[in-house]
């Protein structure tokens, strides 16, 4: 293998049509979603089409990036850029969660007590400030999700998956490819288990606990936060799978493996968010 390009030369990629393809995919996705939500005909197909194009675009684009990376066209400066960018990207994701955590916080600390305060009694006679709450106009009773069942198991799963990626990383640094691959595979397995349990939990909520999206703010915040997190776990698992494939193909060296690290950071981020969720959604 040749040496990485010298650090004094900037890397600028060739023209590419993938961005435009990606934009068209998003336009279709958005249009399809709008059509479906407003019960227009064929919305589902448009949505699906958008999704298909997006998938093709992701394969094409990332394939290109992987090719460039393996072709040693990235110098150390590019590597630093990737690291910085991944950090900022995760920060933006954190802020996305901040919006939802903020909503939950506001509702529990301000909105519900306010609705239940004596001043509001004219409007909502008899409503009391207890959490979980489905609001003053709630009709059917529901049971909240308990912390020490599936959620606790899920916490364990995610925490140990954090350990397994780190172990895989050690393997990569020590040039032990076997350890890298087993570590990654274990991490993915734990992630998939987590997701399966979450699906089970949702089914349980809908069928036995009468806990739904429509169950007032408790249902709203519960499903929004855990659902959005679950979506991120799915993304994380997908990225881990890609990394696993690449590891099996023999990509990455002990010194240069930003893609692995970026995904590992992302996985840890998903992990930490879960801890927050576990504490404020299930436990407290």
């Amino acid at each position: 293998m040749s040496h990485p390009a010298s650090a004094s030369r900037y890397f600028v990629p060739e023209p590419s049509h993938w961005p435009l393809v990606g934009s068209m995919a998003l336009l279709l996705l958005a249009s399809g979603a709008v059509m479906m939500m407003n019960s227009l005909a064929n919305g589902g197909y448009v949505l699906l089409g958008g999704f298909a194009i997006l998938t093709i675009m992701l394969f094409g684009w990332f394939g290109r990036v992987v090719g460039e990376s393996e072709g040693m066209r990235y110098n150390l400066q590019v590597d630093r850029s990737f690291r910085l960018a991944m950090g900022w990207f995760i920060f933006s994701e954190v802020m996305f969660f901040v919006a939802f955590f903020g909503a939950l916080f506001y509702i529990r600390v301000l909105a519900i007590p306010d609705l239940a305060s004596p001043e509001q009694a004219v409007l909502w006679e008899g409503f009391r400030d207890i959490w979980p709450s489905a609001g003053p106009a709630a009709k059917d009773p529901f049971s909240p999700m308990h912390a020490w069942g599936i959620p606790a198991i899920n916490t364990l799963l995610l925490l140990s998956s954090g350990v397994t990626v780190t172990w895989a990383h050690w393997g990569l640094i020590a040039n032990k490819r076997q350890q890298l691959i087993i570590g990654l595979a274990l991490t993915i397995l734990l992630g998939v288990l987590f997701l399966s349990l979450q699906v089970y939990e949702y089914l349980e909520a809908y069928s036995h606990l009468n806990l739904k999206m429509t169950t007032g703010v408790y249902g709203s915040t519960f499903f929004m936060l855990t659902g959005f997190h679950g979506f991120h776990v799915t993304l994380g698992v997908t990225m881990l799978t890609v990394i696993l494939m690449r590891s099996i193909k023999g990509h990455f060296t002990a010194e240069r493996h930003f893609a692995f690290e970026g995904v590992a950071w992302y996985w840890h981020f998903v992990d930490v968010v879960w801890l927050g969720l576990f504490i404020v959604i299930y436990w407290l």
Partner: peptide, 23 residues
């Protein structure tokens, strides 16, 4: 959240469900 309030029956911004438009 606005989207889910509009189409999926959540109540982030509806007092009846314990939410708050001011949120």
């Amino acid at each position: 959240m606005l989207l889910t309030d509009r189409h999926f029956g959540t109540s982030f911004f509806a007092a009846a469900g314990g939410g708050d438009p001011v949120l």
